[in-house]
Design a protein around this nucleic acid. Sequence first.
DNA 1: CGCCAGGCCGTGT
DNA 2: ACACGGCATGGC
Length: 224
Amino acid sequence: MSASAAQLRHYYRDLFAAYGPQQWWPAQTPFRVAIGAILTQNTAWTAVERSIANLRSATALTLSGLLRQPEETLRELIRPSGHIRRKAATLLAFAHWLKREHRGSLKYLAKLPTEEARHQLLAIHGIGPETADCILLYALNHPAPVVDEYLRRVVTRHHLASEGSSYTDLRQLVSEAFEKSSEQTQQLNEFHALIVQVGKLHCRSKTNCPGCPLEKYLPVSNTN
DNA sequence: CGCCAGGCCGTGT
DNA sequence: ACACGGCATGGC
């Protein structure tokens, strides 16, 4: 394992010690996890919760319930989480695809090899790498590393990866850090949630990280 | 008021 | 291949 990947395991340990289990994903069915994953793209989770509440009122949190909604209605229901035109289209595209290709249930998608399921998810317009990996990890319970902007900031700031690292580069790094673990999927699950947590609390400013559990790992700053 | 959020896509270079 | 702007809304 690379030194950077080994370092990430330390981060996982310290973040878990600092924050405890994060209990992601707050949804009751894999289908709802996927809905949330799409709605939360570049959007605060509190806003997503209000959209979810609207969908629940419209009984649109199941496949048939979602497909019952006219696209214009769906836009209004998800308005609190923004990007309503594209997200409404993506939700419906996802639902139609699931019904057509997997008999309407994510449990059939989950039987496919991770890379095959990932490839199919990425073919859906509006589902990119992070959303696909979130669905794989949190809805299908597959050992898929999730890379987000916060992870990018952390590993860049700590010089565990170069600034120009691609999504694939960072995904590989996280994959290395947790491969061959007996609780790989559970650890990847908590790791992404913990990175988001530390990111929200400490990675807003671009300069320093006061009180951050990972502060002790920062390279010695140069006289400022 | 401005900036950001649990990204993605189309376009231009 | 990579940079950049648009997308929409709500919290702070």
